[in-house]
């Protein structure tokens, strides 16, 4: 899979060969490739000078890392307290049904990855769903589905959300 941002060599070159840069390396790999493959994890741990097990522990400990390729679009449903009180969980369940995928998973056609996030800190907008970088405020599963359909039809759709940060 081609990187969206920096390629592997550029990522490795940026950081001194020290264990403290392991998380930086994995974050850059994640954002360029959308996930952390076994090979890239091996390269990151070799560069940082730590055993592969440490990289694997780190990659499975923190929520933002994925070990499988993710979908073209990421749908993150906020489950912070304010969103919970205003029906965030219901949105997750409804999107699971509509996208036919469990939270944390990717649709079979690799279009969407559905994730939950424990508070994006935009509580005034509850319930919030973040699609790629677009924040959808006071949303419902229905409104979202319309937006996702648009994304599905138009790969270059941009700025269709209410605003991005």
């Amino acid at each position: 899979m081609a990187p969206v941002g920096k390629d592997m060599d550029t990522i490795l070159e940026q950081y001194p060969a020290k264990p403290e840069y392991l998380i930086f390396l994995l974050q850059d790999i994640q954002s360029s490739y959308g996930y952390i493959s076994q090979e890239s994890m091996q390269q990151a741990s070799d560069h940082a000078g730590v055993p592969l097990t440490q990289a694997y522990s780190v990659a499975t400990f923190y929520q933002s890392f994925r070990l499988d390729p993710s979908g073209e679009h990421e749908v993150r449903v906020c489950l912070g307290t304010a969103c919970h009180l205003k029906g965030g969980q219901r949105i997750v369940e409804e999107l699971e049904r509509r996208l036919n995928v469990e939270a944390g998973g990717t649709t079979a056609d690799m279009r969407f990855t559905l994730n939950t996030v424990n508070c994006v800190g935009a509580c005034a907008l509850a319930p919030v769903v973040v699609v790629d970088d677009d924040y959808h405020a006071n949303t419902t599963a229905r409104k979202l589905e319309k937006h996702l359909k648009k994304l599905e039809h138009d790969v270059t759709a941009d700025g269709e959300g209410q605003g991005h940060v």
Partner: peptide
Amino acid sequence: GLSAIATVDR
């Protein structure tokens, strides 16, 4: 001194 295994996930 090998770290062949570790605790994973959280």
